[in-house]
């Protein structure tokens, strides 16, 4: 997380800088929560639109990227709900679109970890990514998830335990079959 950068609430230039600095990390988080990269990109853009609307009211006492993450995670949770409701419609819309770059998509779709993360409650998946990929502190995770800081550790422990069980289950299944 960019701790040094100073952003001025309401400044369009600063928001553009924040966008460039944090776009990839926000996208990285949302990829683990949503169906695929296209959905994650869409939600990321949506999150930045919402953040821009609220940019004037952002208070610099919280890290800007954690604040952005909070918006993005909420957008992703709503996106997940929409996905479940419009699964068939989304499939039709995707037909005929150019497929995303093969390397990223292939890695993402094949990954057991990603599949397991997507089975976790969205905020647990986000907590795992924020800690183990972005290296956020408990305070930053607390801001991002909109929960008290003291809840973060227990939530992370629960998420790790569940993830470990899910992954062990996936790895045990082929052995049984084989």
């Amino acid at each position: 997380m960019e701790r040094v950068a100073e952003y001025q609430p309401g400044s369009a230039a600063d928001f553009e800088r924040l966008y460039r600095n944090s776009y990839r990390r926000i996208l990285g988080t949302l990829v683990t929560m949503l169906r695929d990269r296209a959905a994650a990109e869409d939600c990321t853009q949506d999150a930045f639109e919402r953040a821009f609307k609220a940019w004037k009211s952002w208070r610099p006492d919280a890290p800007a990227e954690a604040w952005l993450h909070r918006i993005a995670i909420n957008v992703a949770i709503n996106g997940q709900r929409r996905e479940r409701l419009q699964e068939a419609g989304a499939l039709v819309l995707r037909l005929g679109r150019p497929s995303p770059p093969a390397d990223v998509a292939a890695v993402a779709e094949r990954s057991e970890l990603l599949n397991a993360l997507r089975k976790l409650p969205p905020k647990q998946a986000a907590a795992i990514v924020l800690r183990h990929f972005h290296g956020y502190s408990n305070r930053e995770i607390a801001i991002s998830l909109g929960v008290p800081e003291r809840t973060v550790a227990s939530r992370l422990a629960a998420a790790r335990g569940r993830l470990q069980r899910l992954l062990e289950g996936t790895r045990a299944a082929p052995k049984k079959n084989g």
Binding site: L27, F48, P101, V129, H132
Partner: peptide, 29 residues
């Protein structure tokens, strides 16, 4: 060990995504 493996796997999956070019920001709702 699990946490280390988790971090390595996350980087393996998400680093290529993080390396992709940043698109233009959508201007308005």
């Amino acid at each position: 060990d699990f946490e280390r493996e988790l971090e390595q796997e996350l980087h393996r999956i998400l680093d290529p995504i993080a390396a992709a070019p940043i698109p233009l920001r959508r201007a308005r709702l």
